[in-house]
Design a binder for these strands. Sequence first.
DNA 1: CCTCCACAGGAATTTGCGGGGT
DNA 2: ACCCCGCAAATTCCTGTGGAGG
Length: 398
Amino acid sequence: MSDSTSFFGDPDPIFANKDLLRVQHLPDKDRIIGRDEELTQLANAIKDAAHGRTPNNVLVYGKTGTGKSLCTKYITNDLVSSAEENDVSVGVAYVDCFQDSTETQTVRSIADSLNDPDETDIKIPMSGLSTSDYYRRLWNILEDRYDVGLVILDEIDKLDSDDVLMQLSRAAESGKIEDSTLGIIGISNKIRYKETLNERVRSSLSERNLVFAPYDAKQLGEILNSRIDAFREGVVEEAVIPKIAALAAREHGDARKAIDILRYAGESAYERGHESVREIHVDEAHEREERNRLSELISKLPSHSKHLLNALALQAQQHDDDDPEIPTEDIYSLYEIMCKQEGTDPLKNRRVRDLLSELEFLSVIHQQHKGRGRGRGAHTVNQLVDEPKLVIKACKSA
DNA sequence: CCTCCACAGGAATTTGCGGGGT
DNA sequence: ACCCCGCAAATTCCTGTGGAGG
């Protein structure tokens, strides 16, 4: 601690408005840096909606932290207000397909965010309806409230079926909705995503394609500078922002991570009781950012997946071997023991294999098929992608 | 190069949940 | 109040298979 005697009373010596460094924070237009080209293209693609006509469907590509979601949210907000001036009502539904990955969940989520139960007298329950019921309600809501519906599907590549896309893209032509119309904006970080779609959906979904390039050091610097107001005047030393920008540009060009690092740097300066943010804080912040990414991912996992990961990490630690391959059956037996100690009953073997392959899909672990020779069967071995220590820590805290 | 079998993973089935309809 | 439905998660059932040892 510093020599300050008060824990809450004194004003924060480092931060003036920390909210500016939250990822969710949606900046004004003049704070969106280096995406003018992309914003114009996006606006052009969907501008028809402002006049009540059907907008183009768009696919937006780009690595994480390149401003895809941010720009899409900004431009759709803008569209809603300029449509209002023309007496056109536009409804925007934002869906994170990582969370709502099944067809039913996606439709439900779209319907829910476009709905206003007081106005439409339509209720959208969390579950209990058939998928087609959700669709029916969605169409009714659209006709009731909006001239144009815009559906933003973030992380669209995480969808486990094309059916939603199919339904949405032909809603208008098949006469499900008559007075309203619908546009889709798909956001993906896999450039090859389009190739995995069937022909019918592909052509209608990708009427326009946009690619967001990673930010370079100069742009990252500007982005960070635009949020400098989060700090008290003069506490961030000059070298700090260029250093973070260079670091982030070299590694990934991810603005979200760059902002996280800046925030962590501020926090670590605060914790040490320093009155300015210096270069040494950046190095700490960088490490902290990497650790946090993993624990955030793990904390969103279902509890049984966490236990499995924990079991795998513990066994990996037993081996002196670096990056040991652990057979599934070993993970399972340790997992069983852990569950019994904790008083929850363990899942069966088959389910566990499914959960493990989900973890592989999330690239938290790596799996490999191996045979064991005559009369000894074949099995799968599992490896952690990250350090066992980090994983165990993340499992505990979650 | 063939063989042999424990585990992999697809398919069918059950369970639990949160709703409608009557 | 009751029964019935669809979905997701979990379980049961069962065929397919990788690859070291013969």
